[in-house]
Simulated scan of single mutants.
Amino acid sequence: MRRDQPPFLLSRPDHPGMSGGQVVTVVGDFDTGLVEAAVSGRWDAGLKTTAAGLLRACLVGEPAGVLVDLQGLADPGGASAALWAAARLWGARTPAVPVVVCLPPAAPLAGVLARRDTGWDLPVYASVPEARAALTAGTARLERLVLHLEPDGSVLSLVAEMLGEACTDWGLLPLYRPACAVLTELVANAIEHAGTSIDVAVTRRRAGLHLAVQDGDRRFPRGPGDVRGDPGDPARRGYGLRLVHAATAAWGALPTRTGKIVWGTLAIAEATADRPRQPAARPLAAPRHGSRR
């Protein structure tokens, strides 16, 4: 990432443009790779700005899909329709991220989105479970390797081994070293600061790799700009996040229902990447401190 670009830390900060009753939240799901955003309250310019920024940040993280829950949105005139349609177009860019909306069928906004003359073609579902099921059906096609680990430093070698297998099988060996540095740093941070069980996922993306580390601690990492001290001293706390910032195309964090996910993406030119292959069926030996799925 650019040195002046902050990480995408999607907590729930205060938004000065929003009034009482307006809420924008986001939650990630490690197992499916989906992100669910909920927008509620009276629709106005402040809520539009906040929701648009949140959706763009969600899409930067290249989730398997984005579900936008609008059941609590007060928009009788359908003025927000253009934003949700735009979000679908943002998600359609490479790498493609499907975007769907959840709305009661009787809501005026649902009628606006369903109009054929708009050409928006935005999938609208009546309930969150229905929308989630539609998106989840598409995630089954993802090329993804997962590790379930205990918070012990000995598991870092398993992380490196899984990543090496992924990069070899997917023709992405040029990404192995930077990706290994990033992923082991994120796992080491989870071991040190969260101290909970840890889930690690490496997912093939058209442009490269998506790395994700989930733990049970709701506290977010600090941005590399928040760390004081001499950046030339690798022993100081926070130095590793500077490495993550420098090595990734983008990185950030988002809350889950039980903690958080910290993610990073690494890109490689398509001309450099070999044709992707299905992961070879050679599972790791069952480790003492982790399990593989």
Rank of each mutant, 00 (worst) to 15 (best):
G208E: 02
G20C: 01
E185Y: 00
V27S: 15
Y239Q: 14
V262I: 13
E270A: 14
R237T: 14
A74C: 06
A267C: 05
A82R: 15
T118D: 05
R288K: 03
A82F: 08
A250C: 07
M1Y: 02
P287Q: 01
C102R: 08
P221M: 07
R205M: 12
G171K: 04
V60H: 11
M18Q: 10
R222L: 15
T139K: 02
R222Y: 10
W90I: 10
P224C: 08
G61T: 06
E36N: 00
G208C: 02
L55K: 04
E161T: 14
L59H: 03
S127N: 03
V244W: 11
L163F: 07
R277P: 00
E130G: 05
A106W: 08
V27D: 05
E192L: 13
G72L: 11
G153R: 15
D152S: 14
C58H: 07
L113Y: 02
P98D: 11
I268P: 00
V60S: 09
P234A: 12
G17M: 04
G264Q: 01
R12D: 13
P16F: 06
V182G: 00
R292F: 06
L10R: 11
H15R: 11
L254I: 08
G78R: 07
G28K: 00
G78N: 07
D75V: 08
G46R: 12
P6A: 15
D121L: 12
D14S: 08
G240A: 10
A194S: 14
L209T: 03
P178W: 01
G91L: 10
T94P: 03
I191P: 03
A273H: 01
Q71P: 00
L73A: 12
F8T: 04
R206W: 05
L9Q: 01
L209M: 05
V35N: 03
R204F: 12
G216M: 09
L34M: 10
A81P: 06
V27K: 09
P95L: 07
Y176G: 00
